[in-house]
């Protein structure tokens, strides 16, 4: 559809003006914010710590600041933690969201109540989530209480005090928070599948599993890619919950890149270092985004192509 015919208005200056009017505000805002990025660039090449002088006469450091960051093992550990956090939480969100979407795909009585509850976590402010779960996660708190009742043993997990478990806990929080996002996307994907396919496969005697894996799943691929990529990128930037709950602790078990960046900039006031780190993160994110975009574009072209064929779809 996107490369179908554009509207047959006479081209000319009017059109050009019109196009730029549409884009104008965005470009205006981007131009407006650009100096902040330039300042950031300036910082990353100069050595400035807030309390050691003013920014305009900070010493030029060339690539020194970048070298410092790149040789800082703490930064790499933080990057590794971020990657683990983002991948596992993305995976968790996806599995839970997809399963929910499958279960909710066909309507039943009380469907809309379930639906309304399932999207609630996404509507909850992240800081609120952190504080609420703090109440729930005490060793002598409701979650252990409920688990004890269900499992009939005394569950005494310290959810926040032991490094590996604390990591698990923040990942679970992220999953709890953002499963609805995947759920909604997958639901939209499922409802777009043509029912005739399903019927045809059943008539041919295919098992449910084969229908799912060989008919539905391939058709859902673009939506799945979309959900995974968006979720992964948002998880890489997660800050409020981890910070409000653990400030990177215990030890440095939950010190992800955003947490380390925050510490460097706002606790050590080492602006240059923070800036250099930001740029490295930015480059890294752009690489991921570009990769993601390549995948997404390929998927989109495929579906556009399918739908552009006469008779298909619509």
């Amino acid at each position: 559809m996107a490369n179908a015919q554009t509207i047959a208005r006479k081209p000319g200056r009017g059109l050009l003006v019109f196009k730029w009017t549409l884009l104008g505000p965005l470009f205006g805002l981007l131009l407006f914010i650009l100096p902040a990025f330039l300042l950031q660039l300036y910082f990353s090449f100069h050595s400035w710590t807030i309390y050691l002088g003013s920014w305009w006469d900070a010493e030029f450091a060339g690539l020194g600041v970048f070298r410092d960051v790149l040789t800082d093992s703490r930064f790499w550990w933080a990057a590794l933690r971020s990657l683990i956090f983002a991948s596992l939480s993305t995976l968790g969100c996806f599995v839970a969201g997809f399963a929910l979407a499958m279960a909710m795909h066909r309507p039943f009585r009380g469907h809309s109540l379930f639906y309304a509850v399932f999207i609630l976590p996404m509507l909850t402010v992240p800081v609120v989530i952190a504080y609420t779960f703090e109440m729930l996660l005490f060793q002598r708190g409701p979650i252990n209480g409920i688990l004890s009742t269900i499992l009939m043993t005394n569950v005494n997990v310290t959810w926040l005090a032991q490094p590996p478990i604390a990591v698990f806990t923040v990942i679970m929080l992220e999953i709890w928070n953002w499963t609805p996002f995947v759920f909604i996307i997958m639901l939209a994907g499922l409802s777009s599948l043509p029912p005739e396919l399903d019927e045809a496969a059943q008539v041919l005697g295919a098992s449910r599993w084969r229908i799912f894996s060989e008919v539905q799943l391939p058709l859902l691929r673009p939506v799945i890619m979309l959900a995974l990529i968006l979720r992964f990128l948002e998880a890489m930037g997660e800050f409020p919950k981890t910070w409000a709950l653990l400030q990177g602790g215990p030890g440095s078990a939950t010190e992800t890149v955003p947490v380390y960046l925050f510490l460097t900039t706002w606790q050590y006031f080492h602006i240059s270092r923070g800036a250099a780190m930001s740029y490295l993160v930015l480059i890294f994110m752009i690489l991921i985004v570009l990769l993601g975009i390549r995948l997404l574009r390929r998927e989109k072209q495929t579906i556009d192509a399918i739908h552009a064929k006469p008779g298909a779809g619509e």
Binding site: A2, T6, I7, L15, F18, K19, L22, L23, I33, A36, F37, L39, Q40, F43, L233, E234, M236, G237, F239, P258, L261, F262, T265, W266, I271, G274, A275, S278, V281, L282, M285, I286, V289, I293, L296, R297, K300
Partner: peptide, 28 residues
Amino acid sequence: RYRILSDRRMFNLLMLRMIPPIVVAAPL
């Protein structure tokens, strides 16, 4: 309707969203 942004630019646009806000907080 007018393709004022190419597909590639459209995707680049998404990148704006993906910059963690913490990255620009100090210079801002």
